[in-house]
């Protein structure tokens, strides 16, 4: 689960969270066991509709001020470590 959630954990953390998450899952089991035949799901308190604005140009956030908050930026872009393995 930690891998899926992109969380690097040490062994202590893994042991502790395993116990705590089991307890939480047990607690929410009431929901899993609920008879919900014919009950529709609610994703949002009110019906949400796509909201569109008129297609008129307007200023967006300033690029330099946004990039100034990045851990590493270069040539007007965010810089990250390589995202793919070496070419075969």
């Amino acid at each position: 689960m930690a891998r899926l959630a992109r969380l690097a954990l040490d062994d202590d953390e893994v042991g502790r969270y395993a116990v705590q998450l089991s307890a939480i899952l047990e607690h929410v089991d009431a929901v899993r066991r609920l008879d919900t035949a014919d009950v529709p799901p609610t994703a949002h308190p009110f019906p949400v509709e796509n909201v569109l604005r008129s297609d008129i140009e307007r200023p967006s956030l300033d690029r330099d001020s946004v990039l100034s908050q990045a851990p590493v930026a270069e040539s007007g872009r965010f810089r990250v470590p390589r995202i793919m393995g070496e070419a075969p």
């Binding site: 992109r6 969380l7 998450l21 990250v80 390589r82 995202i83």
Partner: peptide, 27 residues
């Protein structure tokens, strides 16, 4: 690599309750 950077950043940057909830939600 990017994935290791992501995971280390999040492992170090988030506290215990946030990590618990992220894992619970991911599950």
């Amino acid at each position: 690599d990017a994935e290791t950077m992501n995971a280390r950043t999040r492992g170090e940057g988030f506290g215990p309750e946030v990590k618990r909830r992220i894992m619970m939600g991911t599950y």
